[in-house]
Design a protein around this nucleic acid. Structure first.
Length: 319
RNA sequence: GCCGAGGUGGCAGAGGCGGUCAACGCACCCGUCUGAAAAACGGGCUAUGUCGGUUCGAUUCCGACCCUCGGCA
């Protein structure tokens, strides 16, 4: 095993964790310390005008907004506002964006820090996405969306019995995943799947977490703070220009406050349900920790956590 | 005090004219994940107020008690 000791060996810091663990603040801190720039890996923060609901930054941050990036407390964060509301996005597109941005950051001799809560994006970027060449076929999707999961499964089994059998119990009943699988099968003759491209270079993956109770409490508090600081009016503004169904499809804040604004539910109920869904989201986000090969997990409820992470990053930079 | 209604899992709430009862939703817990991922999906969890009676058998019938909610006083 030979170590690369040259300083040109590219380095990347990844920070992953569920919502409310302070990923962005930590990233900003690290960026300042090591002359870095941030790439956001978040499937909702990509959208312009979705700021409070997606929790792009703290209320007391100094921000300067640009298309495609923000400058927050003096640190550049790439990946905010790269899409207009209702535009499509995907993990494949994220990979391209992240690669491009990473190169750019390297050229300017800065340290790239990938931070976000969308585990799927980070995993895809780090370890590749096999079917990344096969695009969405919206016509096919809309016809297939009329079928039940069982029907979809039968179709898949006809096209590719092996693939169908290899699915787990969850995916076998998941229409969305089945439709995607069919989409891949249908386009196979034309497009061959790409070979998996793993990220090459030195990566340090930091995971941020805490107990469920701790995170739930923090998330509730933060939600109330945002409700008191314009979250509802952000949704109202969006409703004027955007199809409400799109907002519903985003989930969480945008879904529940849209339901409230549309008069489908009382505000109190909406907030209650939203809290529950945020909790469930936190649980799901935690599941991704096991998807990352080498991850250093820190409990943010411990006072020493930030210091330990800083030390760990210092060592990583020094090598 | 009287009359009426009712007491089902952590919450909410349905059915069952006596037969291993026990839905759905929420919460909570666990999990899946290769171009929608804050999405979509899989699994799990705990119950019939108390005490007696009738019966082969009671959550379901009867009685007492306790409690809750209405109305009358």
């Amino acid at each position: 095993m030979h170590k690369k000791t040259n300083e040109t060996s590219p380095k990347l810091i990844v920070i992953y964790g569920p919502t409310v663990t302070g990923k962005t603040n930590l990233a900003i801190k690290l960026a300042k310390r090591h002359n870095g720039e941030i790439i956001s890996a978040d499937s909702r923060q990509i959208f312009k005008n979705l700021d409070i609901g997606t929790g792009k930054v703290d209320f007391n941050s100094k921000v300067e907004k640009h298309n495609g990036y923000w400058i927050v407390n003096g640190v550049k964060i790439h990946g905010f506002d790269i899409k207009k509301p209702e535009e499509k996005y995907s993990a494949a597109e994220f990979i391209k964006f992240a690669k491009k941005t990473l190169e750019q950051i390297r050229k300017s001799k800065k340290l790239p820090i990938l931070v976000g809560g969308t585990g799927f994006y980070i995993k895809s970027f780090l370890y590749g996405l096999e079917s990344a060449g096969i695009k969405e076929n919206s016509k096919l999707r809309s016809t297939l969306s009329k079928l039940t999961a069982l029907e979809l499964y039968h179709r898949l089994a006809k096209l590719n019995a092996q693939k169908a059998q290899s699915l787990n119990e969850s995916d076998k009943k998941n229409p969305r995943r089945l439709i995607r699988a069919l989409e891949i099968e249908k386009s196979k003759p034309k497009l061959s799947t790409q070979k998996i491209e793993e990220f090459e270079g030195n990566v340090k993956v930091i995971g941020l977490t805490a107990s469920n109770e701790y995170l739930y409490k923090k998330a509730n508090k933060w939600l109330w703070a945002r409700l008191d600081n314009g979250l509802v009016s952000e949704v109202e503004k969006l409703l004027q220009t955007v199809n409400y169904r799109w907002l519903l499809s985003l989930g969480l804040e945008y879904k529940w406050l849209t339901l409230f604004k549309k008069g489908k539910i009382e505000k109190e109920q909406a907030v209650k349900r939203l809290q529950g869904e945020i909790h469930a989201f936190i649980r799901r986000q935690k599941m991704w920790f096991r998807q990352f090969k080498k991850i250093e997990i820190h409990n943010i409820s411990q006072k020493s956590a930030i210091k330990l992470i800083e030390k760990s990053i210092d060592d990583f930079i020094k090598f």
